[in-house]
């Protein structure tokens, strides 16, 4: 190669752009505020990313299988409200499995619609975003939900506890990432998720029962949402009906940032974890440099669009192209 051409630089940016941008962010934030790389701050970021991260793990399965899940935010509100309510009625030991069962039912319903009835996942989960929000409000009567005896319950361990000096939410996130990462990378089910997302027709022609795989991905997503709801409820021991509102977009942003393609068939759990951390650090950095939290909403969207652009650009091998 005689010289590095413009196209090659474009190609490199397209492939590694997210990491380059992330590195620039880190350098910039560190220069702007020394506290950014402080160990306490880093732990804080990971801890506050855990809920988002747990949800992103499940959505990774859905996205790789070639679908979307926009219902995770309002489903997480549902889980949180339900488990707080049942905590006082049934006690935590029964409340937790009851909440998981109810959330999984929602996931199964979505999985049935998208998998077996082959309805468009964007429409189905967008509809469910709204429907589940209504369900939550109906359940709670529109009231905030609080645990009566906040000081006397062991339920707070999931959100506030520590083990080996590490906050429990981080442990749950990492443990779940390890388990789901292994399932995705190493089991026959994981392989089928990639096949269905990569080319659903070819998967069917290879004897894979596509509907079943899609259904299972939505169950996986609902399970992760229930776990996130558990952490959320346990952390605050009280909640509004809208606690998960808007999270679906951040979750999607994290998954795409990690490099999963919205077209399906690519992505890994490890990359999603990276995506979650990138998003967490950028949001934290924005706060540390003194921007208001609502700037995050704008930035999150800019990041999503940037990530989608780079995803497409990587396929074309350059940043701009007249032919899609």
């Amino acid at each position: 190669m005689t010289s590095v051409t413009k196209t090659q630089i474009g190609g490199f940016l397209a492939r590694q752009g997210i990491l380059v941008a992330f590195a620039l962010f880190i350098i910039g934030f560190t220069l702007a505020n020394q506290r950014f790389l402080d160990p306490d701050n880093i732990l804080g970021v990971v801890r506050s990313s855990a809920i988002l991260g747990v949800m992103a793990l499940g959505v990774t399965f859905v996205v790789i299988s070639g679908n979307l899940d926009l219902s995770v935010g309002s489903m997480m509100s549902f889980s949180t409200i339900v488990v707080l309510d049942l905590h006082d009625k049934l006690g935590p030991t029964l409340a937790i499995p009851a909440m998981f069962a109810m959330t999984l039912c929602l996931g199964a319903f979505i999985g049935f619609l998208v998998g077996y009835l082959k309805l468009n996942s964007l429409i189905v989960t967008l509809g469910m975003l709204s429907a589940i929000h209504g369900l939550t409000l109906t359940y709670s009567g529109g009231q905030n939900m609080d645990i009566a005896d906040k000081a006397g319950t062991w339920f707070s361990v999931f959100g506030q506890g520590e083990a080996l000096g590490i906050p429990v939410p981080i442990l749950i996130f990492l443990l779940l990432a390890a388990v789901l990462g292994t399932i995705l990378a190493r089991t026959p089910f994981g392989r089928k998720v990639y096949a269905v997302g990569g080319n659903g027709t070819a998967a069917t022609f290879s004897g894979i029962r596509r509907a079943r795989v899609v259904f299972a991905c939505y169950l996986m997503s609902a399970f992760c949402v229930a776990t996130a709801g558990l952490i959320q409820a346990s952390r605050s021991l009280g909640s509004q009906n809208t606690v998960g509102q808007g999270l679906e977009l951040e979750v999607l942003a994290a998954v795409i940032l990690g490099g999963a393609s919205l077209l399906g068939g690519s992505g890994t759990i490890f990359k999603t974890v990276i995506g979650v951390l990138i998003l967490g650090f950028i949001q934290n950095g924005l706060l540390l440099v003194g921007l208001q939290f609502y700037v995050q909403y704008v930035v999150t969207w800019v990041i999503i669009i940037l990530a989608v652009w780079l995803d497409v650009a990587a396929k074309r091998g350059k940043l701009l192209s007249p032919i899609a």
Partner: peptide, 25 residues
């Protein structure tokens, strides 16, 4: 074919359920 998948995974796709050691492929 799943074009974005590697050669091996494409070839063993119909029997991936049977090619296991424990729970893993």
């Amino acid at each position: 074919l799943v074009l974005g998948m590697n050669c091996r995974d494409n070839m063993t796709l119909p029997q991936v359920d049977d090619l296991t050691a424990g729970p893993f492929v």
